[in-house]
Design a protein around this nucleic acid. Sequence first.
RNA 1: GGGAGCUUAGCUCAGCUGGUUCAGAGCAUCUGCCUUACAAGCAGAGGGUCACUGGUUCGAACCCAGUAGCUCCCA
Length: 913
Amino acid sequence: MSISKTYQFNEVEDKWYSYWLEHKFFKSVPDEREPYTIVIPPPNVTGVLHMGHMLNNTIQDVLIRRARMKGKNACWVPGTDHASIATEAKVVAMLKERGIAKTDLTREEFLSYAWEWKEKYGGIILEQLKKLGASCDWDRTRFTMEPDMSAAVIDTFIHLHKKGLIYRGVRMVNWDPKGLTAVSDEEVIRKEVNQKLYYIRYEVAGSEDLGARIKDGAKSEVEGVRSEDSATRTPRPATSEAPATYITIATTRPETIMADSAICINPNDERYTHLHGKTVYVPLINRAIPVILDEYVTMDFGTGCLKVTPAHDLNDYELGQKHNLPVIDILNDNGTLNEKAAILIGEDRFAARKKIAVLLEEAGALEKVEDYKSQIGFSERTDAVIEPKLSMQWFCKMTEMAKPALDYVLNGEVKLIPEKYINTYRHWMENVRDWNISRQLWWGQQIPAWYLPNGQYVVAKTAEEALAEAKALTTDNSQLTTADLRQDEDVVDTWFSSWLWPISVFDGFKDPENADINYYYPTNDLVTAPEILFFWVARMIMAGHEFKGQAPFKNVYLTGIVRDKLGRKMSKSLGNSPDPIDLIGKFGADGVRVGMLLCSPAGNDLMFDESYCEQGRNFANKIWNAFRLVKGWEVSEELENPNQTAISWFKNRFNQATAEIEEAFKDYRLSEAIMAVYKLVWDDFCAWYLEMVKPVYQQPIDVQTFNATIGYFEEIIKLLHPFMPFITEELWHDELFGTRTAEDCCIVAQLPSIEEWNTQQLNHFENVKQVITEIRNTRNNKKLSPKETLDLSIKQSSDVNYEAYLPVIKKLGNIGNINFTEEKVIGAVNFLVSTDEFFIPLSTNVDAGAELLRLQKEKDYLLGFLKSVDAKLSNEKFVNNAKPEVIDNERKKKADAEAKLKIVEDNLKFLAN
RNA sequence: GGGAGCUUAGCUCAGCUGGUUCAGAGCAUCUGCCUUACAAGCAGAGGGUCACUGGUUCGAACCCAGUAGCUCCCA
């Protein structure tokens, strides 16, 4: 039988995934074992698998598989998120293609299209995750908008409303004029954009004739004055002696001047003291607005005069509130100007901006235009420029809920990994603002608020319950029927459902004392992106506290952002993201998993490059070939075991590595864990152990060595499994490891326990390795063939047990005879390992000159080293202050160096003779 | 503007409470090998003023201050 020289992952991956599913290894039901639970951050139904998912889910799968192999009842709950804004946008787009406008549909009709869309595309990511090997309990797959989940959302709304934590209010919200909905601050992406700063002149009215101006508003007169002004005056700071007839403001949004309620100046600004108490006219529409004073205005920004537009800017809104200014909203929901604008009605805000600039110019009110850079908010979902807009929204009070949620993190009940995020978290939670939970959409849970004809509202689960509530409000409502009630059109924010996720996936609302929730909650680890630390993680903690009295998880592992090797965030628009499924096809799921982990230090962004996956694939191939080697061995019962030292060394090394890996996992340093396994397998097992025990070509191996090797190999496969589930399962079932029952699978094998190891043997072997390396080096330097056998003499002074390793040195160094000597061997190549001297006699002469140079260099180094050690030891302050073990160490270093120096000096003397 | 973080080899990163021959790992590079497990490999080697400048200390990649550059969050 011939086995392929390279590992053919495509022939095994699907096979084993199906096998695991068939045998229900991913399935979890509560039992007497300790649970280990992860709930997946539910991907959007609109999404397709991207590199962020790959990273995130690889980590979750590694954790869950490892827990399973530690005997825990491992449960990974998968599911998807309904993503109201994104999905609604997709459905609207789909309908548009079919020639259907959303506005032509009833809510019910629209939702049936949306469900149709969700059924068709909503499961793509979950299917793709299977390719990666994700061992989710698929029977538990949930969706945030399925009936039970939605019921939980509605109940939560009612509950919090009853507690007074949900209220209705007019607020400045981030309005998405394309999505036609409010979005949260977190869904707004700020980008630096090149803009223009428009300097606009507002005419100042004399306070005495203000009445007349407003009364007749004579346009011709105003224009007459202005044209005269612009012809004769140049802009300059006004003085009290010669009051200017206009003031200039700077704005990036000239199209909003029609919504101005005031001009604000800093009371300390001496340039403008003459304007105190004055009135000015908005250009083009000539509406009179007051000049107000507030220290909020920065004197040295722009002209120091600020136009105040309460309807269209958050800061202006607050300023307007403070000064009791009217709110003039000139924009429609879709971003076009409405009749309140008086001019340019129906124009889009950006078209209006261009046109108004022309109008202002023509009217002589435009002083100048400058280039200007500033941060602009864009909708994460639709990429439309966010419009600050006043609207009636539902809010959830946060201050009260944030307090305990902050405490969980501060007192360590919930650990953030890495810890640096605690700062960010605290900052957010201490400056938390109320959560706008309403969205002007249909796809989502409809807000359970019902409006009465008289404008009052009640919050209730059904129309019937709402009617009862309504009747209870006042006796006037006794004649009401459900037909008189109108349910709020809006839905709740998607996060208002996903904050319940860790509870609702176990039906913790529907059936609060059920076996699942009691067993699996709180979950163990949450793996997610730091971007959603606040609006998902923090809120889950709030909900966990509110409804379960317990945080929903113990550890939150925050992954970095996957960037390309130039450091750019991977995105569709840049086209710099590889298709994960293609990657899996190219390098195998195991290879890609290893690749992801190799470059993913916890919490730091990772500069992804395909070469990491290549490294992962090569690693799989290495494992495969180690298997091929062992598989090819013939076993002989007759033979003695010549490999006892190697066997015992590897046992120690294995135990040490297992402990290292365990430590790395404890701190969630997964890239270190995978590297530790990588080196154990590649260096220790393949390059050293197998090379030591491998019989010469076509010779059989003794039983003991064979069995030990098979045993080690199996343990290694287990260690590898969480990282590389497919190749390990494939090898596990090979007859090399004996016959197995159908249920005896690597996925449920128990990881090796950590055992003690003998440090001394490991240290001694490090010396032996060095000896072998030096021998190989000698060959390299002298251009000797590896096939040519050499002899070796050892002049030992250390306590290393070389005797036991002589067969190893002979085999790996291709040494013929070894002897121990008390004398230096003249004319031989020599090298030093620790304080032991080694000699290799060669037929050719040693190059004395080169040798002299080498020894001299060595001597210089040792002298320098000794000098620094002596400096420390003769320093009184060092001897007095340093810890005793540090001082001992220095003494040992000194002794060591002196011994070596003596050897080197002797050799130099020898060479001289 | 406010806050957080980062800067160590060509690349990606370790470096725990300052003290082992403390400057490390993987990849990449270079040299030599098609040595029947593996060229997706083997055996070796060379790469660093630990961003910069000061300070604390017997001793600093590590602690402190300042400077520069980068990133993120909030306004």
